[in-house]
Structures are given as structure tokens and as C-alpha cells.
Computed example of a mutant assay.
Amino acid sequence: MNLETNRCKLRTLKACDRQGVLRVYQDEQVRRYLGGPVEEALIKRLIKRLDEPDEGRFATVIEKRTGSFIGMVSIALHHDQINEEVSYQLLPEWWGKGYGKEVVSAVLQYAFQNLHLKKVVAETQAANTRSCRLLESVGMNKETAVDRFGEKQIIYAIYNNDHT
């Protein structure tokens, strides 16, 4: 996945992203609603996968002006094993500046135009009000709620206008 937004470049994850990926998975704020920081052994396995082809569904988010790694975004199979899910994790210093909305909007457009998906979902903890607002701001609507990982999760969905 290689995309550009006004302020960001989204490119395929590469081995040089290891340090940024490590930061994302170990940051307590980023992982607050995602089960907490990930153990280093698991992170090493995840990082090892950076060398594998990803079919254009995982991307590093780089801020154009500074060249800084600000997070990751992906389109991958959801827990329901039916729908594709947009997922994102940005480092806290980039929160509240519109980067999340900019990046998720671009990835949804990519999912519909390039991957020809009819529907994309996103799952977030109901307690993660910032993520809920972000998903709603890009046009996603609450579809259902589930209990998963011991917490109430909200499943959001958006449909490709060409298929509704």
C-alpha cells in the first residue's frame, strides 16, 4: 500500500520500520484499549514478518514534513472471518491533529478503489471515545456491539458507494 495524503505518506512496512513498530506495540497509551503493551517476544515475531510480502494491506505512516514514523495502518481480515477491517495505531504525540482521520480516510478509499471491497469494518472498545469519534468522522456507522477481550466493543461499518 503506497498512498499519499496532504501530510502523510503511507508505504509498505519495511525492515527499517522496526524501531517505530516496537514503539507502537510497547506504548501504554497506544495500547490502552488494545490489551496493553505487547510482550517483547511477540513483538519480535511481528517485526520478523516485516520482511514478508503483505499484498499491500499494511502500511507505515510517515509524516511528510519531518519524515517521522507516526504509526501504522492496515486492512486485514476481521475477527468475524468475513469482513475486512481497517485498523490503525498512531503514536500519542500525533494524536488530536487530524492525522488519524486523514490516514483512515485514505485507506478506506484505497480499500474500495484498489481492493474492490464492498464493506469495511472497524472494531474499537466502547470506552475509546476518541477512536469512536474518528470512525464516525470518516463516515463509518455503528453496526453492532460485542463483548470481546472482556470489554464491550463497537463494530463500525462503511459500504462502498458503488455497491450500496
Rank of each mutant, 00 (worst) to 15 (best):
M1V: 13
R7E: 11
T12Q: 07
C16N: 03
D17I: 11
G20E: 12
R23P: 07
V24P: 00
D27M: 08
V30I: 11
R31V: 03
G35F: 14
P37R: 03
E39Y: 01
A41H: 14
L46Q: 07
R49F: 12
D51I: 02
P53D: 11
E55A: 15
E55Q: 14
E55W: 07
R57D: 02
V61A: 04
I62A: 07
I62E: 15
G67I: 04
S68Q: 00
M72T: 15
M72F: 00
I75Q: 06
A76M: 11
A76W: 05
A76I: 01
H79P: 09
H79A: 10
Q81E: 10
E84K: 02
S87V: 11
S87R: 05
S87C: 05
Y88N: 15
Y88Q: 11
P92T: 06
E93R: 04
W94N: 13
K101I: 04
E102K: 12
E102P: 06
V104F: 05
A106C: 12
A106W: 01
L108K: 11
Q113F: 04
L115M: 12
L115W: 12
V121R: 01
A122M: 02
E123H: 06
E123C: 05
T124V: 09
A126Y: 08
C132T: 05
C132V: 09
R133F: 03
L134C: 11
E136M: 13
E136T: 09
G139D: 02
M140K: 13
K142H: 06
D147R: 04
R148M: 13
E151R: 09
I154C: 07
I154S: 07
I155H: 07
I158R: 06
D162R: 15
